[in-house]
Design a protein around this nucleic acid. Structure first.
Lengths: 201, 201
DNA sequence: AATCGAAGTAATCATTCAATGCCTTCCTTG
DNA sequence: CAAGGAAGGCATTGAATGATTACTTCGATT
């Protein structure tokens, strides 16, 4: 009389393990914080996004700050991994096609903008001491990963700078709102270049 | 028997005109919002910074959102003016020294980082519809001013991108915290270049 | 000096928010 | 099936926040 799905690898259950639930809430928090940043997002908003109660969110992570720090660290780590993955399969800093491959790594990050948005929110929330410390650490790690490409520090700097501009353009929803003729539309086209179709659906 | 300072152009008075007070509160709000952003700054924090009561701040500007919008618009306008001032005295886009003059305009903005910080806070607070609209407008205006330099759109884009990186580095207080040997210190030196002494007191 | 308008505050209110404690419900194991 | 432990909600609370209202005080003008 067990329900038919009772025999699959993970039997149906209304309760998840603490780790499973933790992961789901972490995902929900990524979306919520991406929208409104650290100060602008309530733990209740995260809870609603995750479909659990607000006190449970706090209980899992201890505090809103601890939750944000974990989400932020995850975001910067994910971004670093995207670049590391490209470099892992060989990279010639003088090769134009390899340069493009690295730029294309940004493309996959654009597919889920939440990582980029959370990163930016963390950077600007650096007035909170703990967030500032993690922001500097995260930026340091990404810089170091990109340095591993063999590019000069100046080249890496330029690459990161372009990324920061794209992040800002995404944060202000420029691709969605720019009208033809609007100067911002020109900047959008010029900044996103090849990736433009990915951000204008 | 008047107090000695009673004969200066503006006689001593404990009350200021509405416009004078408005300007002072606007300045205070610039500092407060630069620290903690839109959502993270209370109207009471602004009031304390300005030395007036919290209800008075709300009464002058109507709402916290209206106040932030005014501060943000003022910040982007100030930044645009700094660039416009350089371009106003002639600019040859092929001249390397003229390029450096434009970069140096950023130097004077670094002297009061609050403008840059408020701008970044506005960008990342674009989830609030009114702020997003003003953020896109502000970025559009700055882009247009820089386009007036005669540089190509790609050159302007690169210039703005470098600026965004610097803004992020300032937001995360990289110059203050980077230790020698830290990868972030290398990025800081490389990003600020000539202006490094200006940000490391 | 009396007055009137403008500058500014004190008191208050309704919300919102992060966090705590207690209780319930489910799954698992003996 | 009994029991214990873990998952998760409910009720609550105290502080913070944005905003409103009513009141007070200052200064210029007649």
């Amino acid at each position: 009389m067990n329900p038919p799905e009772a025999t699959v690898t993970r039997p149906s259950k209304s309760r998840l393990t603490a780790d499973e639930r933790r992961g789901l809430v972490l995902d929900a928090a990524m979306r919520a914080f991406a929208r409104s940043g650290y100060a602008g997002t309530s733990t209740d908003a995260v809870a609603r996004e995750a479909g659990v109660s607000q006190p449970y969110v706090v209980r899992i992570f201890g505090s809103k700050l601890d939750l944000f720090l974990e989400v932020f660290t995850r975001a910067t780590a994910r971004i670093g991994e995207a670049f590391a993955a490209v470099l892992a399969q060989g990279f010639d800093p003088t090769s134009e096609t390899d340069r493009e491959r690295l730029g294309a790594a940004y493309t996959e990050l654009l597919a889920d903008r939440d990582f980029l948005l959370v990163m930016m929110h963390g950077f600007t929330a650096s007035g909170v001491a703990e967030i500032g410390a993690e922001a500097r650490a995260g930026m340091g790690r990404i810089f170091e990963i990109l340095r591993g490409s063999g590019m000069t520090d100046e080249e890496v700097r330029d690459f990161i700078a372009q990324g920061m501009l794209l992040n800002v353009m995404i944060a202000m929803q420029a691709p969605e709102h720019a009208q033809a003729g609007d100067p911002l539309a020109a900047l959008t086209e010029c900044a996103f270049g090849e990736m433009l179709p990915l951000v204008t659906p």
